[in-house]
Amino acid sequence: MPSQTNNKPELEEFLRHRIAARGAMPFVEFMEHCLYHPQWGYYVAPRQRIGKQGDFFTSSSVHFVFGRLLFRQLQQMAELLGGEDFTLVEQGAGEGHLALDILDAAAAEDSELYQRLHYVLSEVGADSRRRQEQLLERHLQAGRVRWAAFDEIDSLEGVFLSNELVDAFPVHLVEQTGEGLREIHVAWRDGSFHEELLPLSTPQIENYLTALGIRLPVGNRAEVNLAAVRWMEELAGKLRRGFVMTIDYGYPAAELYSPLRRNGTLMCYHRHQSSENPLENVGYQDITSHVDFTTLQRCGEPLGLLPLFFGPQYRFLMGLGFVEMLMELEARETDPNRARNLRLTLKNLIMPETGMGETFKALVQGKGVGAPELLCRRAISDIRLPMV
C-alpha cells in the first residue's frame, strides 16, 4: 500500500525525517502525527472538516433533532444527580454543532437547568476552538460555556459526553501471519510511504486480543485501540459521580473481529470520498477505525463505570422520543416538499442500512448513581404517538 503524492509537504517532511532517524514507525505513531501533529495534523490545522464543504458528516451535523433528543437524556441525568450545578463535558466537539443544539434546547425548554448548566468543551485544536467560540457566542456571553484541557478536568460530578471521538484515536494495525501476529509499520522509500510487517511494538497488543478470546485467521488484519483503554481508565479516575455517554460507530468485540472482516475497519475520508489507504493525502484526510465497545465496558466496570445502556443509535434515539419529535416537526411544516425533505433527512439518523442507525452505537455508563431506568431504555412498545 504505497502512498500517493498529495501529502501536506511539511508533515511529509517531518515524517520522513523521523523514519530516517529511527527506522520504520509503527502505524499507530504515523496515524497520531497525521491527525494530531501540533502544527500540521488533520484535527489541528485550519480546515473545514464537517458538513458539505468538509470531508464527512456527523449525527449532530445532520439535524438539530439529534442534540435536542440528547438533551432529554441529559435533563434526566441532571435530575438524578441533583445539586446546584450541572456540569457537562464534551471532548472532541468539532465545530460545536452538538453543543449548540444542546444549549439551545436547554435555553428554550428548561431555563432553570440552563442557568445552572456548565458546558465544558475539551478541544485539542485552536482552529476548532475558534469555530466553537463563534458558533456558541450567545451561550458564551451568558456564561454557560468554557474550555478546559482534558488533563485539567478532575473530580467531575456530572456527565462526560463524546460523539465520534474514540474512532479517531490512533490505533495499532496488525496482521496475522503464518509466523504469528505482526504489526504494520510505515517506511519511506522510492519517494513514497510504504508498509512493512514487523514484530509487535508492545506486548499489550497481543494481551488485548487474548483478553477478548480473539485469534485472527491467517491473512486477516485488525486494529487494536490501546488509546481507548487508557482513555476509559482516565475517565473513570476523573469522574467522581455521574455518567459517561459515548456515541460512535463500532461493534461488540466478537463482531468487530469477525473472521469475515478480513481487512479490519480502517477508513479514510477526504472531501466525502472514502478510501482504505491511510498513506495518501497525508495531513489532508481523516483516518478512523470502528470502536470496540466490549473493551470500553470491560475496562470501565472494575473502575466503577457500570453499563446502563448499550445499543444501536436508532434504538437510543427512539427511546428518547425520535418518532414523536419527527411527527411534531412534520405537523408544523406546511409545505409538503419541505416536510418530505425533513423526513428523509432525519431518517439518516436511524436507518440501519443506508443511514447511521445501526452502525452507530450508544454506550451509557454510570458511576455512583445506582441503576436508574434511563429514558433511552424506553421500550418501543411504550412509545405513544402524539395526536397531530
Rank of each mutant, 00 (worst) to 15 (best):
E157D: 08
E157F: 01
G158W: 04
F160M: 07
L161F: 13
L161E: 06
N163L: 12
N163T: 08
L165T: 04
L165I: 06
L165N: 02
A168C: 10
F169E: 03
F169H: 10
H172K: 00
H172V: 05
L173V: 10
V174M: 01
G178E: 12
E179P: 00
G180Y: 00
L181H: 00
E183P: 02
E183N: 01
I184E: 01
A187H: 12
A187V: 02
A187D: 15
W188F: 15
W188T: 04
W188V: 05
W188L: 02
R189C: 01
R189M: 00
D190H: 14
D190R: 14
D190C: 04
D190G: 06
D190N: 13
G191R: 03
S192F: 07
S192T: 10
S192Y: 06
F193L: 03
H194N: 02
H194G: 00
H194V: 06
H194T: 03
H194C: 05
E196M: 01
P199Y: 00
P199V: 00
L200A: 04
L200P: 02
S201P: 12
S201N: 05
T202Q: 01
E206F: 03
E206M: 04
N207D: 15
Y208N: 01
L209P: 06
T210L: 13
A211Q: 13
G213L: 12
I214V: 15
L216H: 03
P217K: 13
V218F: 08
V218Q: 11
V218P: 04
V218S: 06
G219D: 09
G219M: 09
N220E: 10
R221P: 03
A222Y: 08
E223Y: 11
E223M: 08
E223W: 11
E223G: 07
E223D: 11
V224D: 09
V224G: 06
L226F: 09
A228T: 02
A228D: 02
R230F: 12
W231I: 05
W231N: 07
M232L: 12
E233D: 13
E233P: 07
E233R: 14
E234N: 12
E234T: 14
E234R: 14
L235V: 13
L235I: 15
A236V: 10
G237A: 09
K238S: 06
L239N: 04
R240K: 15
G242K: 07
V244D: 10
M245T: 10
M245G: 05
I247Q: 07
D248L: 11
D248H: 10
D248P: 08
D248R: 11
Y249P: 05
Y249F: 14
G250A: 14
G250E: 13
G250K: 09
Y251V: 09
A253C: 10
A253I: 11
A253M: 09
A254R: 15
E255R: 15
E255V: 15
P259V: 12
R261M: 13
R262F: 11
N263E: 15
G264A: 14
T265I: 07
T265G: 07
L266T: 10
C268A: 12
C268G: 08
Y269Q: 08
Y269H: 15
H270F: 14
R271Q: 14
H272N: 09
H272Y: 11
Q273H: 14
Q273M: 09
N277A: 05
N277F: 01
